[in-house]
Amino acid sequence: MKPTIVICDDDQAILEMLEMVLDDGTKNIILVSNSTDIFNVLAYSRPCAVLLDLWMPILSGDQILKKLRATKEYAQLPIIVISASREGESVAREAGATAFLAKPFDISQLCETVEAYITS
């Protein structure tokens, strides 16, 4: 069975770029552009990792992350936060992120980080 990765970002171009980079045929990639949909998507997809943008309208990445970390089911789920914000890494870590990648990110670093969490 292929590992599933959920990517949540309000920027469609970022979603498409991440899908293109990560979809090598060995993974299921699920894209979520509306942050309010993430909880339903996680419930049915059972991902092995999540890529989560920090700054999104309605529900921000840190709000989502805090809710996920507060539930037993998602407390240990690898969540990699991505952000272009200068203070993004500290906000992400405080909210419980497993890892942080600054935008614009290095493609090889992105792939290595994702692979490390889906194979562990």
Rank of each mutant, 00 (worst) to 15 (best):
S108H: 14
M20Y: 10
K27M: 09
F39N: 14
T4I: 03
A13Y: 02
E89T: 00
M20R: 09
I7P: 01
N28L: 06
S90Q: 05
G25H: 10
S60Y: 03
T36G: 09
K27V: 13
I118F: 00
D24T: 03
Q12H: 11
A13L: 07
S45R: 09
D10R: 05
T4S: 12
L59Y: 12
E112D: 15
R46E: 13
I7K: 04
S45Y: 07
P47N: 11
K67T: 14
A49W: 02
F39L: 15
Q63E: 15
V50Q: 09
T113R: 03
S90C: 02
S85D: 13
L22I: 06
S85F: 11
T71K: 15
R46V: 13
S108N: 14
G61W: 11
K103H: 06
S120F: 08
G61N: 11
F100I: 02
R86T: 03
T113V: 06
A92S: 09
P78Q: 00
L110C: 05
G88K: 08
R69F: 08
T98S: 10
D106R: 04
M20H: 09
L51M: 14
I80A: 01
D24S: 03
E115S: 09
S85Q: 11
E112M: 10
A13M: 08
A102S: 11
S108D: 15
A75S: 15
D24Q: 04
D9C: 04
N34F: 07
G96Q: 07
L22K: 06
R69L: 03
D37A: 08
N28T: 15
A43Q: 14
